[in-house]
């Protein structure tokens, strides 16, 4: 660790403790029910008078995912600009992640035409979800809670909100993978072959196949949602119980880095597996 990082860490710890103490003594509701009340609620904004699914937005999810996306884009442009045959440190890290993903995708996908597109989708999913899970599980930051219908912001009392803790994100990605896998299947086997695959091994199995296919995106999305959302609630509650003072680093490390990375990998791997199952 160099001097700059050490100074940064010290400043962070001092700020963290100061704000933690302020949080613990002034802003934290004394009543436990007040905390748990807003736990399962989301900050939802209605953008028009009409209340329908297309007029309601989760601003926190969008803001966090945009923050992550902008960060990733900046990193991508910065690293991608000086991609060389002899790599530097950042390029090596990027390449080792890509190599790891590429090897898995290559071993799972039989058709060489679909290796690169699948790799692109799976790696993007993995990077995005991993960053989002780590940010939402291990990095203390801005926390938004809904109490009695009003939005309350607190700093460093909990980790950032992970976009993957919102079912909107997960279900969208799972459905996207579902659509992509079937699109690839049509491309690989033709429309006839694809239609035929629904009636295999026997036409009686058609309803089973439909249910099986529909279950895929649901289980795919709910797995990630349950892990990240549940982890966030657990971390939040445990942090509250220790009054935010004792560093809940163990929970952050476990739910953020460990579970977060594993779930990101699982999500990406399942996407690859679903695509592979469809095109083969």
């Amino acid at each position: 660790m160099n001097k700059k990082a050490k100074v940064g860490l010290i400043i962070f710890i001092v700020v963290y403790f100061t704000i933690g103490i302020i949080n613990a003594f002034y802003f934290v509701p004394k009543d436990t029910s007040e905390v748990t009340q807003g736990l399962a609620s989301r900050w939802i904004v209605q953008i028009s008078d009409k209340s329908a699914w297309y007029t309601r937005l989760n601003p926190l999810t969008i803001a966090m995912s945009w923050a992550i996306i902008i960060g990733l884009i900046i990193f991508a442009v910065k690293v991608g600009k000086n991609f060389k045959i002899i790599p530097d440190r950042k390029q090596s890290i990027t390449e080792s992640v890509f190599d790891f993903m590429y090897e898995i995708v290559e071993s799972v996908i039989d058709d060489p035409r679909f290796v690169k597109p699948t790799f692109t989708i799976a790696t993007t999913l993995f990077i995005y979800i991993a960053v989002s899970n780590i940010l939402g599980g291990a990095v203390p930051g801005l926390n938004v809670s809904i109490a009695n219908g009003s939005v309350k912001f607190t700093l460093f009392s909990d980790t950032f909100f992970a976009p993957t803790a919102d079912l909107n994100t997960n279900l969208t990605y799972a459905l996207m993978v579902f659509v992509i896998s079937h699109a690839f299947a049509i491309k690989a086997k033709g429309v006839k072959g694809w239609l035929k695959s629904w009636f295999e091994p026997n036409p009686i199995m058609f309803p089973m196949n439909v249910i099986g296919e529909l279950a895929k995106p649901i289980s795919h999305s709910l797995r990630l949602f349950g892990n990240v959302g549940g982890g966030a609630i657990l971390t939040f509650m445990l942090s509250y119980l220790v009054k935010y003072l004792l560093l809940p680093i163990v929970f952050w490390g476990f739910f953020g880095i460990f579970v977060g990375l594993i779930q990101a990998l699982v999500f990406a791997m399942l996407a690859v597996a679903y695509i592979s199952a469809q095109i083969s």
């Binding site: 399962a40 609620s41 989301r42 939802i44 953008i47 699914w53 297309y54 007029t55 309601r56 937005l57 989760n58 999810t61 969008i62 995912s65 945009w66 996306i69 990733l72 884009i73 991508a76 442009v77 690293v79 991608g80 600009k81 991609f83 990027t94 890509f98 690169k116 790799f119 692109t120 989708i121 790696t123 993007t124 990077i127 995005y128 976009p163 919102d166 079912l167 909107n168 994100t169 279900l171 969208t172 990605y173 996207m176 959302g229």
Partner: peptide, 30 residues
């Protein structure tokens, strides 16, 4: 509220596709 699906999903899909496009252009192709 936790399970509500709304316009956010569309925004998420679009932002993901944008991320996919930019990562592909700047990282994967390279």
């Amino acid at each position: 509220e936790m399970f509500e699906i709304n316009l956010t999903s569309v925004v998420q899909l679009m932002s993901f596709l944008l991320l996919l496009y930019i990562l592909k252009k700047f990282l994967y192709d390279k």
